[in-house]
Amino acid sequence: MPDETLVDVWGLAPAVLVIMVGGLALGLVVAAVDRAVVSGEAGRAVVEPLLAGARGLVEQRRTTLAPDRLLWRIGCAAVPTLALLSLAVVPVGGRTLWSTSADLVWFNAMEALLWAAVWLVGWGPNAVHALTGGYRFLAQGLAYELPLMFALITAGLAAGSLRTTDVVAAQEGLWFVVTMPVAFVVFVAGAAAFAFWGPFAAPAAADIAGGVTSELSGVDRLLVDLGRAVFLGAAAAMAVALFLGGDAGPWLPGPLWFLLKTLAVVTALVWAGRRVPVLRPDRTVEVGWMVLVPLTLLQALAVAVLVLNGFYA
């Protein structure tokens, strides 16, 4: 008995519009919190990302010698598109934009397609720093992808469904973060990694002059930076839905709770993430495989045993 989706309730165009505006607002929040932490001045933190956006609109687009222009542009446009598409399965107020019966797979697929998009952004300009950024993203992807998938599937396992609304409903008694803290932490860290932000910003780091973003200007830079911020926001919202009980909470209306929890996750993530330097992918890949894969598997095993004992029923 699939629940009604936002599209069913509001119609296609308004529902899509609401999710898009919501996604952009979420991206702005992420960028503003990040800005406030990095610059240490909270006053202009909200304005700054808007200024950066306006700058993207007035600035000339960059060209390089013999670029792979088509693939380059596709990559740049794909980053924010995938970020907004991943928001389509995040349940707010008990509804998602659309329901696929395999929402978790959908979310993961958007993030997997990001591999291709970021690689193309690095490949396209035919420049050494951008290409190095692309290599780094793929190396980092090898580190985070499997633990991230195990973390996602652990939540699905406990709920007995891949539908995010079911996962939220299954947390009525107890938030999943209590029984699966490892999966929660790995998921949030994985979110920072696929948005190549903070300690996982190696693909766009200063040591390679901005890496995949080094040859971007104008609207291309705007799209990629926007996509990264929205992805981080979408992942924080997803973490709330999967591990922090979604919009459950006393006194306040559900969507407000959801918003507050998402804000808390974003703030905690940015605060913690900006306390450390960029971690080099060749070292994170070792931790990913030697530590996180076994840990997340053990986490999944523990949850599976709980499921068999009827703990979540």
Partner: peptide
């Protein structure tokens, strides 16, 4: 910073 890349060819 950029044209190191210019040399890179496809």
């Amino acid at each position: 910073m950029d044209h190191g890349g210019g040399h890179e060819g496809m």
